[in-house]
Design a protein around this nucleic acid. Structure first.
Lengths: 210, 210
DNA sequence: GACCTAATTATACACTTGCGCAATTGGCTC
DNA sequence: GAGCCAATTGCGCAAGTGTATAATTAGGTC
């Protein structure tokens, strides 16, 4: 019994909230929203269950906060790599597709969280809104990158066709992301990225591989 | 109070099992596996909760049976349309892609079930096996259709490339399927099929639209 | 260093959960 | 039509659920 944790330690509100949110995400990924009980979350965050209701007005509130935190984190992971690239539009699109199909974006835990939250997303208006906004944001960013890359290559595309290309590429990336997370052992490292780059290139008619 | 249901009616074992499985699928889609309680399932199936343990040794057993039933049903829905087609290989591939991206295969309930079962799939060996087999079956069928269509068009493809093409098309179909089910109002009828046909054609280098 | 306030714990409550089991009921055989 | 047996019910149990709230504790203020 070398549990060195003191029984009563004060932490800042932000630190405690974050610890509770991260514990919540762990448990939602493992057992779903209903399996993430307040007692389990409190244990994981090294506090007693009563404290949860000191920082969150209800379990519902904590779940919502955890979902929003996760979505922001995923958005950050997805767009950070492309933000650093200062090359051509084609190069930016290449980096975006590639990093969207690699860890840490592709990850079994992300799929488990997506699945775990889906029920709530379909029934809770606030969560549905966050989900839709994140989806639209991803899709619009992808469309912008595709348009820039095509214009750069002197391949101007009408809006309707551009929309269809973006939807197709978005679906492709999401599908490969899902399969990579759901069956991690089925793909070698870099394999999904390679397939994604080839296929996005084929769909938009502009090769992304050298 | 016009509840005309008799309190005690005997049914065949198959009929009762099916009713319980369908009630289970309804509730799993609505609230997830943990939200599908034995009492809720019994209510939905118009029986008392004790009867469940007469037909299934545990709730776990019922959930597994419901999952396998659902997967078989999805497989049937997916492959029935292409089995009726007696045209060219290209035509068969066209029908397969098209029907995989339309109702009843594309359906919010299917997504909800996929998400609801995912946790169990990741932790239960038997369910993981069923899931993997269904995935591999879908992928292999798609690969066979693509190979036949390419050979028919005098475009023989080496196995490694064929594998990558199939994985890409599989991911594309899965991703569009997921988006169509998760955001039903975002797509007009036939839109997903159209985008899927165009994109699969672009990926394999053989147009599927006339 | 006593005090005061907010963070943290501890405990209780009403409700739900899966499961076990004895009691009932209906259709089938003879 | 009496009797038998499986299908079906009804009820109870122990464990787990979210929530409420009173009791403790730590750390900054004067």
């Amino acid at each position: 019994m070398s549990d060195e944790r003191r029984k009563f330690t004060r932490e800042s509100a932000e630190q405690r909230k974050l610890a509770l949110i991260e514990a919540t995400l762990e448990l939602v990924a493992e057992k779903g929203v209903r399996g993430a009980t307040v007692r389990g979350i409190a244990d994981r965050a090294q506090v007693t269950q009563g404290l949860i209701r000191h920082y969150f007005s209800s379990k519902e509130d904590l779940i919502t906060a955890a979902f929003e935190h996760h979505m922001m984190q995923m958005t950050g992971l997805t767009f950070a790599p492309v933000a650093k690239v200062k090359g051509s539009a084609r190069e930016q699109l290449r980096v975006f597709v590639q990093s969207s199909l690699m860890p840490p974006v592709v990850d079994p835990r992300s799929i488990a969280l997506w699945a775990g939250f889906l029920n709530k997303v379909q029934h809770d208006a606030q969560m549905k809104d966050v989900h839709a906004k994140t989806y639209v944001h991803f899709r619009d960013q992808l469309e912008g990158l595709i348009r820039a890359a095509l214009e750069e290559a002197d391949m101007p595309t009408e809006p309707g066709q551009l929309y269809r290309l973006s939807t197709a590429c978005n679906g492709l990336i999401d599908g490969l992301w899902m399969e990579g997370g759901a069956l991690p052992e089925a793909f070698a490292p870099g394999e999904l990225s390679q397939i994604g780059l080839y296929s996005v290139g084929a769909i938009i008619g502009l090769s992304l591989v050298d």
